[in-house]
Structures are given as C-alpha cells and as structure tokens.
C-alpha cells in the first residue's frame, strides 16, 4: 500500500474524533449541562472497557471496581486531606494505576472466561468493601460528601459545572486521541495479536503477559480517571457506583454503540445515559427496558446503534459529495 491512502485515512480518523467532540460541544447548547457532563464522563469510562474487549479480547464485567478505586481515592483526598480537586484527580489516577498493577499480574494470566468472572466478583467485593468493611472511613451507604471542601482553582475552576464541562471535554478529547494513537502503534497491533493468536505472537518474541498487563493497566487507569471525574463533578461518592446491578454498564454502553467502532462508545454513552434518564423519569423501572433491549441487540447481531447507523449515515451524507472516493475506499 502506498502512503497516500494511509495518510488520508489517518486524517479522516482525526477529523472524526474532532467531529464527534464538536457534536458533544453542540449538545451542550441544547441539552441540560448535567446530562452532557454525564455523557462525557461515561464515554471516558467506556473507552477503557471498549479497548479491553475490542483490542485485547478481554471482557471485563468488573470495570466499576476500578471506577470506584479512582472515585474513592479522589474522595479520600478531598474529604480528609486536601482541597484542590486537580490533585484529587491525580490521586485517583495513581490509585487506579496501582490497583491495576496489583491485581493485573494475576488476572491477565487467566483464561478469558475466568477473567470475566473474577472481575465481576471483584466489582462486588469492592462494593462490600466500601459499603461495610471500610465503613468507618467511607461512611458506608451515606457516602463521602466533600463538595464544600473543594476550593476554587485558578484558570479552570472545575468546582463550577460549566467549567467542569470544559475540563471534562478536554480530558475526553485527550483520552480519545491517546487511544486512537495506541491503535496505530506496534503496541496496539500486539494487543490485537494476543487476541487473535497468542502462540504466534510468542514465537515472534513478544511476551503475551506483558502486553496484556500493559493493556490492562492502561484501560483500568482510564476507568479510574473517569471515577475521579465523577467524584469531583458530583462532590460526593457512595458505594452505589459499584453496585452489582451496574457491573455491566460499560459493557452495555459499548454494545449499544457497537464493538470495535470508533464512535461506538460515544454513541452508546449518549444512548444509554439518555435512555436511563428518560426511562427512569417515565416509568422508574429502567431494568425492564434495558434488559430486553440488550438481549435484542445481541440476538440481532451485536452491531449496535453506531454499527447500524454508520453505513446508513455514510450513504446519506457522502453519496452525492464523493461517490467516486467512496468507491475507491470500498475497493481498498
């Protein structure tokens, strides 16, 4: 393949990310601020899980555990020690990274089925840990409230919802760009290779273990970051964020969006947050709708909303403008 199409493709990808975030910025104008903030955080939350599932072949039903680690690390700092939310977020990142490094070496050795189940158990254990075992410092079900502890920060005051939106927007953009970049590196290729054929990758002289561990740590640190953002945004953390019924949240989001698609997690976050919001307002029983919907999506071929919309959108948007270019793309 010559360099021309590769460059053009890369440019199209970057342009795509910018467009997606432009749309989110646009949503800010029409939708209520809490909703948009929720979507931003959720999309950061989902991308780690999406990376693990789509690129490494690990399905994690335990993402809320790492979300909770990030959220609680931030909360502990802001509740007991400091006042600067930025430092709180750094603590969350560090804790997420440390937690992933702690359990990762054991987890990534497991077969993918055990991996999914062990993570699921981990999420529930973290829930009990925060709710009961560490109750003296986590205040149990009441949670930690530290909204008033946080002091305003210079330049971007993230204690204000409006400015938090800008911050979360920028963080989201950076995270997405980072994962986009990962895709194009050798590391990204190796991740995909461990998913497809781990033996052959070993013959090439790579260590499956190290690649998986790195992917695991990266993905879960991202998830912890989302947790920290939640903590700062809400000004409170309770065990509810890792409740057993929410263990599959990120998995549902990426499935709603479509596995392995670039915008899947964003589209899924919008759809899921929106649906939950609307459904719980209307009938207060979101499980009854989300559950069957999930089953239908899976049985219908797991293409998800974006996976189904993408060809259709392409058709509508680009048909008149550059049919020829599209044809060339198809041929390639």
């Amino acid at each position: 393949m010559n360099r021309g199409p590769t460059l053009r493709k890369a440019w199209a990808w970057w342009w795509g990310i910018l467009l997606a975030f432009m749309l989110i910025a646009g949503m800010r104008l029409v939708l209520p601020l809490p909703f948009v903030n929720e979507i931003l955080i959720f999309s950061i939350y989902a991308i780690g899980c999406s990376f693990l599932l789509g690129k490494v072949g690990f399905i994690s039903f335990g993402q809320p555990a790492y979300l909770a680690v990030g959220a609680y690390a931030t909360a502990f700092y802001l509740f007991y020690f400091g006042t600067n939310p930025y430092i709180g977020i750094l603590w969350g990142l560090a804790a997420g990274c440390a937690a992933a490094l702690l359990v990762g070496p054991l987890f990534v050795r497991l077969r993918s089925d055990y991996f999914a189940l062990v993570n699921l158990a981990l999420a529930v254990i973290v829930f009990y840990l925060m709710q009961k075992v560490l109750a003296p410092i986590t205040k149990g079900d009441n949670g930690l409230w530290f909204l008033t502890n946080m002091t305003s920060t210079p330049v971007l005051d993230i204690t204000q919802p409006q400015q938090f939106f800008i911050f979360a927007f920028l963080v989201g953009l950076v995270v997405w760009a980072f994962y986009k970049y990962l895709d194009d590196t050798i590391f990204g290729a190796c991740c995909l290779a461990t998913k497809i054929n781990e033996d052959k990758l070993q013959f090439l002289g790579y260590s499956n273990f190290r690649i998986r561990l790195a992917a695991f740590v990266i993905a879960n640190t991202t998830t912890a970051l989302a947790g920290s953002l939640y903590a700062v945004y809400l000004g409170a953390v309770s065990p509810e964020i890792t409740a057993p019924s929410r263990t599959a949240d990120p998995v549902i989001v990426i499935l709603l969006g479509g596995v392995g698609t670039l915008y899947g997690p964003i589209v899924g976050s919008v759809a899921y947050t929106g649906m939950k919001d609307v459904i719980s307002k209307l009938i207060g029983n979101w499980e009854m709708v989300i559950g069957p919907l999930l089953v239908i999506i899976m049985l219908a071929g797991e293409k998800g909303i974006w996976g189904t919309l993408e060809p259709w959108l392409k058709n509508v948007l680009f048909r008149r403008r550059n049919t020829a270019a599209d044809d060339r793309d198809e041929a390639r």
Binding site: L53, E287, V295, M298
Partner: peptide, 22 residues
C-alpha cells in the same frame, strides 16, 4: 463465544429484575 452468552444472559437477568420490580 462465551462473551456473547454472558452479556445476553445479563440482559435477561436485568430484564427479569425489572419484571420482579413491576
């Protein structure tokens, strides 16, 4: 594959919890 059954059955579980609540 396994992932598939896990997610689908979680959907069934979630829907069932909804029905029980109902």
């Amino acid at each position: 594959d396994l992932t598939f059954s896990m997610i689908t059955s979680f959907g069934v579980l979630l829907g069932g919890v909804g029905v029980i609540k109902f």
